[in-house]
């Protein structure tokens, strides 16, 4: 039986939830509606009304009809995101594992330095990174491997969440396995990693989402070579440069298309995302 007080409380809670949902969905719905506005029959720029007068797929057709290099840019981003995701997962899991399971000289030093290094503002080093990559031939036409390399190389510094997760797996498991004669590598690959599926998926998911939003460093590295662009550079150009008039509906459509893989992944992996980041609590 529900008390009267509880009923009122629930009613209030529903009202708040509906308001919250409205606020959160409003921009999303707005973007979807804009993306279906015909840029041929109405202005393609921003407009002062929400619901289009002519619904059409014009913007989506533009993206994939070969008028622009969008499919190429989309593939570029997908490749970058997949590679970065795989690379970052391997590297940051290795680092977190080493820092969590082993005690060796210099460990504290590494942990603190990396924590602090992550705070150095990225733009400063952008020009230096550009020239480092240029020496290696990884700019312009080689920008995609270059972006992957930079994305993966420094990922060791973000060991934080995974280390927290590994910290919660009892050391007694390792000790038992060592008595049975397992090497430390075997313990990692055969015992601890299978237990750590949530944090591995969490790391991969977060890393996968990053490259879709990188428009500054990516355009710096691509340096005017349009075949190496990613989606975010194109999106930025469409709304921030004067050369593209009336691209706003196409911009919205591209944003929706980008949202698709991330949404799908999130739908299926939400559980791991939560468990990954809160792993410490689950076991504690």
């Amino acid at each position: 039986m529900m008390s009267r007080k509880q009923k009122i409380g629930n009613a209030l809670a529903y009202i708040v939830l509906v308001i919250i949902s409205f606020i959160w969905l409003f921009p999303f719905v707005g973007l979807v509606l804009q993306s279906f506005r015909s840029y041929k029959l109405e202005p393609g720029g921003m407009v002062g009304y929400l619901v289009p007068k002519h619904f059409s797929l014009d913007s989506y057709i533009y993206l994939f009809s070969g008028e622009s290099q969008f499919p190429k840019w989309y593939m570029n981003t997908m490749i970058i995101a997949l590679c970065v995701s795989a690379g970052v997962t391997v590297i940051s899991i290795c680092v977190a594992y080493a820092l969590s399971r082993f005690r060796f000289p210099g460990r504290q030093f590494l942990m603190k330095t990396w924590l602090v290094l992550g705070m150095f503002p990225g733009f400063l080093t952008m020009i230096c990174l550009y020239f480092l990559l240029k020496i290696m031939g990884l700019t312009q036409a080689g920008a995609i491997p270059g972006l992957i390399l930079v994305g993966v190389a420094s990922s060791g510094m973000s060991y934080y969440v995974s280390k927290g997760y590994f910290d919660t797996i009892p050391l007694s498991l390792d000790e038992a396995a060592r008595i049975d004669g397992a090497s430390r590598a075997q313990i990692m690959f055969h015992m601890i990693l299978p237990l750590s599926k949530p944090v591995i998926i969490y790391t991969a998911l977060v890393a996968f989402m990053g490259p879709w939003c990188d428009y500054i460093f990516a355009s710096y590295i691509a340096f005017g070579h349009s075949a190496s662009y990613n989606v975010a550079i194109a999106l930025r150009n469409w709304v921030w440069t004067n050369d593209y008039q009336g691209f706003f509906t196409r911009f919205c459509a591209a944003g929706i298309i980008v949202a698709v893989p991330v949404t799908v992944l999130f739908m299926f992996l939400q559980k791991y995302y939560v468990e990954g980041i809160t792993g410490g609590a689950v076991k504690g």
């Binding site: 202005p43 393609g44 720029g45 921003m46 407009v47 002062g48 709304v239 004067n242 050369d243 008039q245 009336g246 691209f247 706003f248």
Partner: peptide
């Protein structure tokens, strides 16, 4: 100063690069 970003234009000070967008609008 960008017709594409303006939602309620009666008049706008702008340049020739926006003439196409202005005609559409």
């Amino acid at each position: 100063s960008s017709i594409s970003n303006a939602t309620n234009v009666g008049a706008i000070v702008d340049g020739t690069w926006d003439s196409g967008a202005a005609k559409d609008l």
